[in-house]
Protein backbone atom coordinates (compact mmCIF):
# COMPACT_ATOMS: atom_id res chain seq x y z
CA UNK A 1 0.00 0.00 0.00
CA UNK A 2 1.17 3.51 -0.74
CA UNK A 3 0.32 6.06 1.93
CA UNK A 4 0.66 9.74 1.24
CA UNK A 5 0.41 11.39 4.64
CA UNK A 6 0.02 15.15 4.99
CA UNK A 7 2.70 15.79 2.42
CA UNK A 8 3.84 19.36 1.97
CA UNK A 9 6.54 20.37 -0.47
CA UNK A 10 7.97 23.85 -0.91
CA UNK A 11 10.43 25.26 -3.39
CA UNK A 12 12.07 28.10 -1.51
CA UNK A 13 9.06 30.19 -0.56
CA UNK A 14 6.71 28.66 -3.10
CA UNK A 15 4.36 25.98 -1.73
CA UNK A 16 3.80 23.39 -4.46
CA UNK A 17 1.59 20.97 -2.54
CA UNK A 18 0.25 21.33 0.95
CA UNK A 19 -0.93 18.82 3.46
CA UNK A 20 -1.88 16.24 0.88
CA UNK A 21 -3.04 12.78 1.96
CA UNK A 22 -4.40 9.70 0.23
CA UNK A 23 -3.79 5.96 0.11
CA UNK A 24 -3.34 3.55 -2.74
CA UNK A 25 -4.32 0.03 -1.88
CA UNK A 26 -2.56 -3.02 -3.25
CA UNK A 27 -3.88 -4.13 -6.64
CA UNK A 28 -5.27 -0.71 -7.33
CA UNK A 29 -4.49 2.19 -9.60
CA UNK A 30 -4.73 5.74 -8.43
CA UNK A 31 -5.22 8.52 -10.95
CA UNK A 32 -3.84 11.88 -10.03
CA UNK A 33 -5.42 14.66 -12.00
CA UNK A 34 -5.01 18.37 -12.03
CA UNK A 35 -4.27 21.25 -14.33
CA UNK A 36 -0.76 22.00 -15.52
CA UNK A 37 1.43 23.09 -12.63
CA UNK A 38 -1.00 21.86 -9.99
CA UNK A 39 1.71 19.86 -8.26
CA UNK A 40 1.18 16.35 -9.66
CA UNK A 41 4.82 15.85 -10.67
CA UNK A 42 6.04 17.33 -7.39
CA UNK A 43 3.86 14.92 -5.47
CA UNK A 44 4.99 11.92 -7.51
CA UNK A 45 8.67 12.86 -7.15
CA UNK A 46 8.17 13.27 -3.44
CA UNK A 47 6.48 9.89 -3.35
CA UNK A 48 9.40 8.41 -5.28
CA UNK A 49 11.78 9.72 -2.62
CA UNK A 50 13.52 12.08 -5.01
CA UNK A 51 12.29 15.17 -3.21
CA UNK A 52 12.42 15.37 0.53
CA UNK A 53 8.98 16.45 1.78
CA UNK A 54 8.91 19.61 3.91
CA UNK A 55 6.05 18.11 5.87
CA UNK A 56 4.42 14.72 6.19
CA UNK A 57 5.73 11.47 4.73
CA UNK A 58 5.22 8.93 2.02
CA UNK A 59 5.08 5.31 3.07
CA UNK A 60 5.28 2.27 0.87
CA UNK A 61 4.65 -0.96 2.72
CA UNK A 62 4.77 1.11 5.91
CA UNK A 63 8.30 2.35 5.16
CA UNK A 64 9.30 5.91 4.40
CA UNK A 65 10.42 6.20 0.79
CA UNK A 66 12.91 9.07 1.17
CA UNK A 67 16.43 7.69 0.76
CA UNK A 68 15.26 4.19 1.63
CA UNK A 69 16.93 1.56 -0.50
CA UNK A 70 14.80 -1.30 0.80
CA UNK A 71 11.60 0.29 -0.42
CA UNK A 72 12.86 1.87 -3.57
CA UNK A 73 14.28 -1.27 -5.10
CA UNK A 74 10.64 -2.37 -5.30
CA UNK A 75 9.48 0.93 -6.74
CA UNK A 76 9.75 2.13 -10.30
CA UNK A 77 9.27 5.72 -11.29
CA UNK A 78 8.67 6.68 -14.89
CA UNK A 79 9.24 10.41 -15.10
CA UNK A 80 7.78 12.74 -17.63
CA UNK A 81 11.31 13.60 -18.80
CA UNK A 82 12.91 10.25 -19.62
CA UNK A 83 16.59 9.48 -19.05
CA UNK A 84 18.49 7.63 -21.72
CA UNK A 85 22.24 8.09 -21.70
CA UNK A 86 24.04 8.87 -24.94
CA UNK A 87 24.19 5.82 -27.23
CA UNK A 88 21.95 3.68 -25.08
CA UNK A 89 19.64 1.02 -26.48
CA UNK A 90 16.82 -0.90 -24.87
CA UNK A 91 19.25 -3.75 -24.32
CA UNK A 92 21.81 -1.52 -22.61
CA UNK A 93 19.13 0.14 -20.53
CA UNK A 94 17.88 -3.31 -19.50
CA UNK A 95 21.41 -4.13 -18.34
CA UNK A 96 21.53 -0.77 -16.54
CA UNK A 97 18.24 -1.34 -14.70
CA UNK A 98 19.17 -4.91 -13.86
CA UNK A 99 21.91 -3.42 -11.64
CA UNK A 100 19.36 -1.59 -9.56
CA UNK A 101 16.27 -3.86 -9.75
CA UNK A 102 17.05 -7.32 -8.44
CA UNK A 103 13.68 -8.64 -9.64
CA UNK A 104 14.27 -7.66 -13.25
CA UNK A 105 12.76 -10.44 -15.33
CA UNK A 106 14.30 -11.23 -18.70
CA UNK A 107 11.32 -13.28 -19.86
CA UNK A 108 8.92 -10.46 -19.12
CA UNK A 109 11.33 -8.11 -20.88
CA UNK A 110 11.47 -10.26 -24.02
CA UNK A 111 7.70 -10.75 -24.00
CA UNK A 112 6.97 -7.07 -23.65
CA UNK A 113 9.49 -6.24 -26.32
CA UNK A 114 7.64 -8.57 -28.63
CA UNK A 115 4.25 -7.11 -27.71
CA UNK A 116 5.39 -3.55 -28.38
CA UNK A 117 7.49 -4.54 -31.35
CA UNK A 118 10.50 -2.41 -30.48
CA UNK A 119 14.01 -3.19 -31.77
CA UNK A 120 16.34 -4.42 -29.05
CA UNK A 121 19.50 -2.70 -30.27
CA UNK A 122 18.09 0.54 -31.65
CA UNK A 123 19.48 3.76 -30.21
CA UNK A 124 16.88 5.15 -27.86
CA UNK A 125 17.75 8.75 -28.53
CA UNK A 126 16.78 8.17 -32.14
CA UNK A 127 13.35 6.88 -31.15
CA UNK A 128 10.18 8.93 -31.29
CA UNK A 129 8.75 10.23 -28.03
CA UNK A 130 6.08 7.54 -28.07
CA UNK A 131 8.60 4.77 -28.73
CA UNK A 132 10.80 6.05 -25.91
CA UNK A 133 7.77 5.88 -23.60
CA UNK A 134 7.05 2.35 -24.70
CA UNK A 135 10.68 1.40 -24.01
CA UNK A 136 10.46 2.89 -20.53
CA UNK A 137 7.19 1.06 -19.85
CA UNK A 138 8.80 -2.22 -20.95
CA UNK A 139 11.75 -1.56 -18.61
CA UNK A 140 9.45 -0.61 -15.76
CA UNK A 141 7.25 -3.67 -16.00
CA UNK A 142 10.25 -5.96 -16.52
CA UNK A 143 11.69 -4.67 -13.25
CA UNK A 144 8.67 -6.21 -11.53
CA UNK A 145 8.15 -3.42 -8.99
CA UNK A 146 5.57 -3.50 -6.22
CA UNK A 147 5.04 0.20 -6.55
CA UNK A 148 4.75 2.06 -9.82
CA UNK A 149 4.78 5.82 -10.11
CA UNK A 150 3.95 7.10 -13.57
CA UNK A 151 4.08 10.75 -14.55
CA UNK A 152 2.15 11.59 -17.73
CA UNK A 153 3.13 8.20 -19.08
CA UNK A 154 0.55 8.12 -21.85
CA UNK A 155 1.85 11.36 -23.28
CA UNK A 156 2.97 10.63 -26.84
CA UNK A 157 1.52 7.15 -27.12
CA UNK A 158 -0.78 6.40 -30.05
CA UNK A 159 -4.34 5.24 -29.15
CA UNK A 160 -3.56 1.61 -29.84
CA UNK A 161 -0.47 1.61 -27.64
CA UNK A 162 -2.39 3.56 -25.02
CA UNK A 163 -5.00 0.86 -24.81
CA UNK A 164 -2.36 -1.86 -24.82
CA UNK A 165 -0.49 -0.14 -22.02
CA UNK A 166 -3.65 0.26 -19.95
CA UNK A 167 -4.41 -3.41 -20.30
CA UNK A 168 -0.85 -4.31 -19.36
CA UNK A 169 -0.94 -2.12 -16.27
CA UNK A 170 -4.29 -3.54 -15.17
CA UNK A 171 -3.03 -7.07 -15.74
CA UNK A 172 0.25 -6.40 -13.97
CA UNK A 173 -1.41 -4.77 -10.96
CA UNK A 174 -3.87 -7.57 -10.57
CA UNK A 175 -1.25 -10.24 -11.05
CA UNK A 176 1.34 -8.76 -8.65
CA UNK A 177 -0.87 -7.01 -6.10
CA UNK A 178 1.04 -3.88 -6.99
CA UNK A 179 0.04 -0.28 -6.34
CA UNK A 180 0.19 2.30 -9.08
CA UNK A 181 -0.11 6.04 -9.12
CA UNK A 182 -0.49 7.68 -12.49
CA UNK A 183 -0.76 11.37 -13.10
CA UNK A 184 -2.37 13.02 -16.04
CA UNK A 185 -4.22 16.13 -17.04
CA UNK A 186 -6.10 14.07 -19.63
CA UNK A 187 -9.11 12.48 -17.99
CA UNK A 188 -9.96 10.24 -20.89
CA UNK A 189 -6.66 8.46 -20.42
CA UNK A 190 -7.53 7.56 -16.85
CA UNK A 191 -11.25 6.96 -17.23
CA UNK A 192 -11.11 3.24 -17.79
CA UNK A 193 -7.84 2.60 -15.90
CA UNK A 194 -8.09 3.92 -12.37
CA UNK A 195 -9.87 2.54 -9.34
CA UNK A 196 -9.62 5.83 -7.56
CA UNK A 197 -8.87 9.35 -8.61
CA UNK A 198 -7.54 12.35 -6.79
CA UNK A 199 -7.81 15.89 -7.98
CA UNK A 200 -5.15 18.37 -7.04
CA UNK A 201 -6.41 21.89 -7.15
CA UNK A 202 -4.76 24.87 -5.53
CA UNK A 203 -2.03 22.84 -3.78
CA UNK A 204 -4.64 20.67 -2.10
CA UNK A 205 -6.36 17.42 -2.88
CA UNK A 206 -9.89 18.64 -3.53
CA UNK A 207 -11.27 15.25 -4.46
CA UNK A 208 -10.23 11.74 -3.54
CA UNK A 209 -12.71 8.99 -4.36
CA UNK A 210 -13.35 5.92 -6.43
CA UNK A 211 -14.39 6.32 -10.03
CA UNK A 212 -17.90 5.14 -9.12
CA UNK A 213 -18.07 7.69 -6.34
CA UNK A 214 -17.17 10.39 -8.80
CA UNK A 215 -20.41 9.78 -10.66
CA UNK A 216 -22.34 9.36 -7.49
CA UNK A 217 -21.23 12.63 -6.14
CA UNK A 218 -22.76 14.49 -9.03
CA UNK A 219 -26.05 14.18 -10.82
CA UNK A 220 -27.02 15.70 -14.10
CA UNK A 221 -30.57 16.02 -15.38
CA UNK A 222 -32.32 17.33 -18.45
CA UNK A 223 -35.68 19.09 -17.99
CA UNK A 224 -37.99 19.58 -20.94
CA UNK A 225 -40.74 22.20 -20.68
CA UNK A 226 -43.61 23.11 -22.91
CA UNK A 227 -42.84 26.76 -22.38
CA UNK A 228 -39.79 28.96 -22.28
CA UNK A 229 -37.94 29.03 -18.93
CA UNK A 230 -35.13 31.12 -17.46
CA UNK A 231 -32.66 30.69 -14.57
CA UNK A 232 -34.92 32.91 -12.43
CA UNK A 233 -37.50 30.14 -12.45
CA UNK A 234 -35.04 27.91 -10.58
CA UNK A 235 -34.23 30.33 -7.77
CA UNK A 236 -35.52 27.96 -5.09
CA UNK A 237 -33.46 25.07 -6.33
CA UNK A 238 -29.81 24.39 -5.26
CA UNK A 239 -27.80 23.34 -8.30
CA UNK A 240 -24.14 23.55 -9.32
CA UNK A 241 -24.47 24.54 -12.96
CA UNK A 242 -27.38 25.63 -15.10
CA UNK A 243 -27.80 25.99 -18.83
CA UNK A 244 -30.88 26.46 -20.95
CA UNK A 245 -31.87 26.43 -24.57
CA UNK A 246 -35.37 27.87 -24.30
CA UNK A 247 -37.59 24.97 -23.35
CA UNK A 248 -34.75 22.55 -22.46
CA UNK A 249 -32.57 22.99 -19.35
CA UNK A 250 -29.49 21.12 -18.15
CA UNK A 251 -28.71 21.09 -14.42
CA UNK A 252 -25.83 19.58 -12.51
CA UNK A 253 -26.26 18.87 -8.83
CA UNK A 254 -23.77 18.01 -6.11
CA UNK A 255 -25.02 14.77 -4.62
CA UNK A 256 -28.33 13.28 -5.64
CA UNK A 257 -30.84 15.56 -7.41
CA UNK A 258 -33.72 13.54 -6.05
CA UNK A 259 -33.59 15.44 -2.78
CA UNK A 260 -35.01 18.35 -4.72
CA UNK A 261 -37.36 16.44 -6.98
CA UNK A 262 -40.47 18.00 -5.46
CA UNK A 263 -39.22 21.50 -6.18
CA UNK A 264 -38.36 20.47 -9.71
CA UNK A 265 -41.80 18.88 -10.24
CA UNK A 266 -43.43 22.06 -9.05
CA UNK A 267 -42.00 23.72 -12.18
CA UNK A 268 -44.11 21.22 -14.20
CA UNK A 269 -41.51 19.88 -16.64
CA UNK A 270 -42.79 17.69 -19.44
CA UNK A 271 -39.93 15.24 -18.88
CA UNK A 272 -36.94 14.67 -16.55
CA UNK A 273 -34.03 12.63 -17.92
CA UNK A 274 -31.09 11.58 -15.72
CA UNK A 275 -27.52 11.45 -17.11
CA UNK A 276 -24.20 10.13 -15.78
CA UNK A 277 -21.42 12.72 -15.63
CA UNK A 278 -18.19 11.87 -17.38
CA UNK A 279 -14.93 12.32 -15.41
CA UNK A 280 -14.15 15.21 -17.71
CA UNK A 281 -17.32 16.96 -16.62
CA UNK A 282 -16.59 16.27 -12.99
CA UNK A 283 -13.07 17.61 -13.43
CA UNK A 284 -14.38 20.77 -15.09
CA UNK A 285 -17.01 21.22 -12.42
CA UNK A 286 -14.42 20.93 -9.70
CA UNK A 287 -12.13 23.34 -11.46
CA UNK A 288 -14.76 25.91 -12.30
CA UNK A 289 -13.53 28.25 -9.57
CA UNK A 290 -10.43 28.63 -11.63
CA UNK A 291 -12.20 29.14 -14.94
CA UNK A 292 -11.86 32.40 -16.72
CA UNK A 293 -14.44 34.36 -18.60
CA UNK A 294 -12.58 34.18 -21.87
CA UNK A 295 -15.05 36.49 -23.54
CA UNK A 296 -13.45 39.34 -21.59
CA UNK A 297 -9.92 38.61 -22.72
CA UNK A 298 -10.08 40.19 -26.16
CA UNK A 299 -12.42 43.08 -25.39
Amino acid sequence: MIEIKNVTKKFDDFVAVENLSFNVEPSSIYGLIGYNGAGKTTLIKTAAGIYRPDGGEVLMGSQNTYDNDDVRKEMFYIPDDLYFPMGSSIASMARFYKNYYPNFNDTTFRNLLEVFGLPLGGKLRGFSKGMQRQAEIILALSSRPKYLLLDETFDGLDPQKKELTKKLFIEYIAENEASLIISSHNLFELSNLCDRVGLINGKHLTMDCSVDEVSRNYSKIRLIFDHEVSEADFKNIKYKTFSTDGKICMLVFEGNYKEQIEKLNSLRPVAIDEYRLTMEEVFLNEMEDKSYDITKIFR
Partner: peptide, 18 residues
Protein backbone atom coordinates in the same frame (compact mmCIF):
# COMPACT_ATOMS: atom_id res chain seq x y z
CA UNK B 1 23.40 17.94 -12.92
CA UNK B 2 20.40 16.83 -15.00
CA UNK B 3 16.87 16.49 -13.77
CA UNK B 4 16.13 13.35 -15.78
CA UNK B 5 19.18 11.47 -14.52
CA UNK B 6 18.61 12.65 -10.95
CA UNK B 7 15.04 11.33 -11.19
CA UNK B 8 16.36 7.93 -12.13
CA UNK B 9 19.35 7.62 -9.80
CA UNK B 10 17.61 8.99 -6.75
CA UNK B 11 14.62 6.69 -7.24
CA UNK B 12 16.81 3.58 -7.39
CA UNK B 13 17.02 1.18 -4.54
CA UNK B 14 20.26 2.58 -3.29
CA UNK B 15 20.75 5.27 -0.72
CA UNK B 16 22.55 8.53 -1.39
CA UNK B 17 25.21 7.52 1.09
CA UNK B 18 25.93 4.34 -0.83
Amino acid sequence: FKKNSVNVYLSFGITRSK
